[in-house]
Amino acid sequence: MTMNTQTHAANCEDCPVHNLGNLKKLGINMAEFDFVVALAGNPNTGKSTVFNALTGLRQHTGNWPGKTVTRAEGGFVYGAKRFKLVDLPGTYSLLSTSTDEEVARDFILFGQPDVTVIVVDATRLERNLNLVLQVLEITDRAVLCLNLMDEAKRHGITVDARALARDLGIPVVAASARQEEGIPELLKYIYEVATGTYVCRPHRLERTAPHLERALTELTRRISAEFPEIPNARWIALRLLEGDQKIIDAVRNGELRSLIRRTPIRQNEPMVNEGAV
């Protein structure tokens, strides 16, 4: 089974956890890279400035396979590791059905990037958190880039980055990408999350309305039983309840099985038994 190789990969502490097979389908060539980092964010948050600050001129643009959505790719080296950075389309959400959102969602879900950097506008944090919370439902390896801090300062807005990091359970970097402020810290956290030195405890939606909650619990239980490896069963359940065809197909054709739990396994935990699947 193809799963075995991936299970192997997850067994070492600082190994990449991205999904090579699915990344290939998404048109990402990882031949010369160790880790893949996705860059998500709302439109107008200075996401492309962050992208440029991270990659410099080592980038090229093209389209997502089969889609008329622009994709930018670039790379950088940090701590002797080679990172590939993939710019996702700027979206307000991952729940609607626009092509942009589908592309971003599929990349985070199926590509399982080693780190997802979410760029938010510090002056409109509340609105931006909508996307952040949705991303954190899918992946547990993320870094928040609190961009445009200079603008926030000008408007007298302050954001408590430490409290935010505590609430979200992921590293938060205050940055002004235009002035290259915060980029070194961002690089450091990307490295730490990618290599598993920093283990995220991402915020998950606490509760929804009671009638939905009952259905959700029931379905999540069934999904976890059938696919014990997947890291985001509750989110998959939500998508099924919304009738998301892509997820229905992934359940039906077993594509979901290719997804693996990505929290690095610590030494004192039992190894995954390869024969038990």
Binding site: Y92, L95, S96, E126, R127
Partner: peptide, 11 residues
């Protein structure tokens, strides 16, 4: 439909 979802996404 789409209009409603978009509006809610925007907050």
């Amino acid at each position: 439909g789409h209009q409603r979802r978009r509006l809610m996404d925007l907050g």
